[in-house]
């Protein structure tokens, strides 16, 4: 996910905030609240007066809130710069109670893509494993020849390669996101079996 939802949400909130401040300023300036108000100075209002009278606790409280916001913003920056949605090593369920079997994501993806690349009509395949290692999701991208029968290829990938992967992990409901695309190059004459 790489903080994409957080980014969008924060930018929407920021945009709304800026819009509300701007609209409020313009409305006050044009005398919509009252002509008398538009002739006052910026701090000559209830909020300004309240802050002026209670600055002894409002400003330290503001600094405290700013500290929390700064820490959250720093965490956000760290997420933007270093976080990844890739899954770590995947534990494989075994019948024996002794030891744990770990499957490394590149090994699984390598086996999956190698199998798919042997299918007729496939030009290349790539993938990655995302999410929690205990509940991973596989994202598989398959590039087919222009002449490939995409429906047949899709059916074969689901019934063979994806089924084999689920079997290897012992997860019948392993989430798989399959992206089928078509090569830019003209077909080399191969067809899906």
């Amino acid at each position: 996910m790489h903080a994409d939802r957080t980014n969008r949400l924060a930018l929407i909130v920021f945009g709304l905030l800026i819009l509300i401040i701007g609209a409020g300023g313009l409305i006050a300036s044009l005398g919509v609240f009252s002509t008398e108000f538009s002739k006052r100075t910026l701090f000559d209002n209830r909020v300004g007066t309240y802050v002026g009278h209670n600055g002894a606790w409002i400003w330290p409280a503001t600094a405290g809130v700013c500290l929390v916001i700064a820490l959250l913003a720093l965490r956000w920056i760290v997420a933007l710069l270093v976080s990844t949605d890739r899954a770590g090593d995947i534990p494989v369920p075994v019948h024996s109670r002794e030891g744990t079997t770990i499957l490394q994501p590149p090994a699984l993806i390598g086996a999956l893509t190698r199998e798919v690349e042997t299918y007729h009509g496939v030009e290349s395949a790539g993938g990655r494993i995302i999410g929690d290692p205990g509940d991973p999701e596989i994202v598989l991208t398959v590039t087919a020849d222009q002449s490939a029968d995409l429906h047949a290829l899709h059916q074969r990938i689901e019934s063979e390669a994806i089924a084999h992967t689920r079997q290897a992990l012992g997860k019948d409901n392993l989430a798989i996101r399959l992206h089928l695309t078509v090569s830019r190059r003209a077909a080399g004459g191969r067809r899906v079996a």
Binding site: L150, E158, I162, L174, A175, I176, R177, L178, H179, L180
Partner: peptide, 8 residues
């Protein structure tokens, strides 16, 4: 349901 397949 666990497979989300699509063509780009």
């Amino acid at each position: 349901d666990a497979t989300d397949a699509g063509v780009t």
